[in-house]
Design a protein around this nucleic acid. Structure first.
Lengths: 158, 158
DNA sequence: ATTATTATTGAGAATCTATTGCAATAATAA
DNA sequence: TTATTATTGCAATAGATTCTCAATAATAAT
């Protein structure tokens, strides 16, 4: 089942209505495999012929999350970023505090942690989010310069 | 060194100036061991005699992060949440998707993941953020009811 | 097919978080 | 004590997200 079919099924089961606007949004999102945010998605659609209002995009995103197509990954630069779930196997992120670069990597060991926690607490663990941060090789070279605590809460003082 | 002393040292070393407002903010934050956000912090201070402008709180937070007193934990309900670093050993979070409850737990195995990633990529890993999510015991009882994908992007449709 | 019902859309207003400009104040160093 | 300039509070602003509402269109029922 591709993303459109998944969504149609979800819409039907939920008693919602499908619309061309929503399918256009989904197609645009799944055109690449990258992270995305509302504003760039909006501009991409605008630059093609098919302009869709931001309100509709904002209203569609929770549906895409509920239907298991996408998920939130991180809040950065004042807005949320999303990524694919369908067709994109689960992975973790490394964020470079120097240049802001995001690197994805796979890590099975987290499953052990999930199981251990699940057993010890009697909870059902359905997922996780692991982010490592530090400095990438390139930034380690420019040693010490430009380091910051976080992309969001940088303090510029010079 | 307590939180105030840490901050005074940081301020001195950074060529900033300390102020009573900043110390009041720090004292309020470290009064409890809980997570906090800007708005509740602002209201707490307002409810006591010592009202401090939101602008000052927003301007102080990055300093507290840089000085190692606090850090961001998650973005939820449209705004950032913070927690103590000083005097609060590193831990991970479990978030119940049913009731929103946050549970902290310690987990050393993540260090192995850090090291493994660090070695394989030649990066310097300085920290991590691990969040598990699922359903707590209480919510498992009310099985199926009230489940949601995320606290932020909940879809209410009834 | 046609019609009735009502979810969805788009545009803009409203809201909310967070940042910034500015004049007054106050913390440090001289 | 004085000079320097970081910090404060307030108001204005920016940006993201939500909401209002009339018009439209997707489904179900006829």
């Amino acid at each position: 089942m591709n993303e459109i079919e998944v969504f149609r099924k979800y819409v039907k089961e939920s008693g919602l209505r499908n619309t061309p606007e929503r399918e256009v949004i989904i197609e645009e999102i799944f055109l690449t495999h990258d992270h995305f945010d509302v504003d760039t998605l909006y501009l991409c659609l605008k630059n093609k012929k098919c302009s869709i209002s931001k309100a509709s995009i904002y209203r569609t995103i929770p549906l895409l999350i509920e239907s298991g197509l996408i998920k939130e990954v991180f809040f950065e630069d004042g807005h949320m970023h999303y990524e694919h779930v369908l067709g994109h196997e689960h992975h973790c992120h490394f964020r470079c505090l120097g240049c802001g670069k995001i690197i994805e990597f796979k890590e099975d060991e987290v499953m052990d942690i999930e199981k251990k926690f699940s057993r010890s607490h009697g909870f059902e663990v359905t997922g996780h989010k692991l982010e490592l941060f530090g400095y990438c090789r390139e930034c380690l070279k420019k040693e010490g310069k430009d380091r910051r605590v976080s992309t969001v809460d940088r303090v510029d003082r010079n």
